[in-house]
C-alpha cells in the first residue's frame, strides 16, 4: 500500500466517522418533526374530512370520505343560529382584543416608566392573579354578572377578559426595551404623558401588540367554559358553546360540529396570517427579554 492509498483510505474513514452520526441525528430529527407534524395536522385533516361526510360514515376512520358532500356546510350556513354565534364570537373577540391592547399596554407602560409608591406591590398583585385558575373565578364572576344585570349579555361574556394580567406583564416587559430618552425627548417636545404613550411608546412595541392581539383573539374565540355559564339564550351563544349543542343526548352530530369548527377557523387563520410576521418577531423578542 502506497502512502497515497493510506491517506485516501484514512480520509474515507474520517469522513464516514464524521458524517455517520450527523446522518443519524438528522434522521432522528426529521422523524420527530414528521411525527410532530402528523400529530398537529391530523386533527385538522379529520375535522375537514368529517365535515365532508354523511352522518352514517362519521364513525368510519378513513380520511377520504367515500361519498364526499358539502351538505353539512349548506345546513350549517343556512341555520340562522350559526350566523348569530359567528357574529357574537366576532364581536366579543374583537372588542376584548382592542380592550386588551389599550388597557394592558397602558398599565404595562405605567408600571414600567413611572416611579410611584407601591408600584412593585401593584405589579406583584396583578401577576399573582395569573396563579388563580379560571374554575375558581367563575362563581364570583357569575355573582358579579348577576348583581350587575349582565347575565346573558355581551358585557357578561366579555368583562372578565377585557384586561389580563398576562397582557399587562407582556407589555411591561416590552416597554422595558424602550429607552427612557425617547420619552424624555417627547416630554421636552411638549407632549403630555398620554400623547407620549400613544405617539411614541406604542409604535415602538408593535410586535408585542401584534402578539398580544393574536393571543387574546384566539383565547376569546375558543373560550368555552365562561360563555357557557353566563349565556342562557341560544342567540347569545358563541361558536364553541353553540357547536357543543349540535345534536342531542342520544346522538351527537359530529359532522355538523366539525363543519362549524372548520368554518370558525377561518377568522383565526386570517388574524394569524395578518399578524404572523409580528408574532414570530414578538416571541423571539420575548425570549430575549427573559
Amino acid at each position: 500500500m502506497t502512502a497515497t492509498d493510506i491517506r485516501a483510505s484514512s480520509a474515507t474513514l474520517d469522513r464516514s466517522a464524521v458524517t455517520k452520526p450527523r446522518n443519524m441525528g438528522q434522521i432522528i430529527r426529521w422523524l420527530l418533526l414528521f411525527i410532530g407534524g402528523v400529530l398537529m395536522v391530523m386533527p385538522i385533516a379529520y375535522m375537514i374530512s368529517t365535515s365532508l361526510k354523511w352522518p352514517h360514515e362519521v364513525y368510519n376512520v378513513n380520511l377520504i370520505p367515500q361519498e364526499p358532500t358539502i351538505e353539512n356546510y349548506t345546513y350549517v350556513l343556512e341555520d340562522g343560529r350559526f350566523y348569530w354565534w359567528f357574529v357574537n364570537s366576532i364581536i366579543i373577540a374583537t372588542i376584548t382584543t382592542i380592550s386588551n391592547l389599550l388597557f394592558d399596554s397602558l398599565v404595562g407602560y405605567t408600571l414600567c416608566k413611572f416611579r410611584f409608591p407601591g408600584r412593585q406591590i401593584v405589579f406583584i398583585a396583578i401577576l399573582s392573579t395569573l396563579m388563580i385558575p379560571t374554575e375558581m373565578l367563575v362563581i364570583p364572576w357569575y355573582l358579579m354578572s348577576q348583581s350587575l344585570g349582565w347575565l346573558d349579555s355581551y358585557w357578561g361574556i366579555m368583562f372578565p377578559g377585557l384586561m389580563t394580567a398576562f397582557g399587562t406583564f407582556l407589555m411591561k416587559q416590552f416597554f422595558e426595551s424602550v429607552p427612557d430618552d425617547f420619552i424624555e425627548a417627547a416630554r421636552i417636545d411638549g407632549l403630555n404623558e398620554l400623547q407620549i404613550w400613544w405617539t411614541v411608546a406604542l409604535p415602538l412595541v408593535k410586535p408585542a401588540l401584534a402578539a398580544l392581539a393574536i393571543f387574546v383573539f384566539l383565547g376569546n374565540w375558543t373560550a368555552f367554559l365562561w360563555p357557557l355559564i353566563v349565556t342562557n339564550s341560544v342567540e347569545m351563544y358563541t361558536i364553541p358553546v353553540g357547536l357543543s349543542g349540535f345534536g342531542d343526548e342520544a346522538d351527537v352530530a359530529w359532522e355538523l360540529i366539525m363543519t362549524g369548527a372548520a368554518i370558525s377557523t377561518i377568522p383565526t387563520l386570517v388574524v394569524f396570517l395578518i399578524f404572523q410576521r409580528f408574532i414570530i418577531r414578538g416571541v423571539v423578542m420575548a425570549g430575549l427579554k427573559g
Binding site: 429607552p179 430618552d181 425617547f182 424624555e184 425627548a185 416630554r187 421636552i188 417636545d189 411638549g190 407632549l191
Partner: peptide, 14 residues
Amino acid sequence: PKERDIAMVFQNYA
C-alpha cells in the same frame, strides 16, 4: 420641560 424654552440632544440621539 416643554415650558422652559429649551431643546435637548441626547447621547443616543432619541
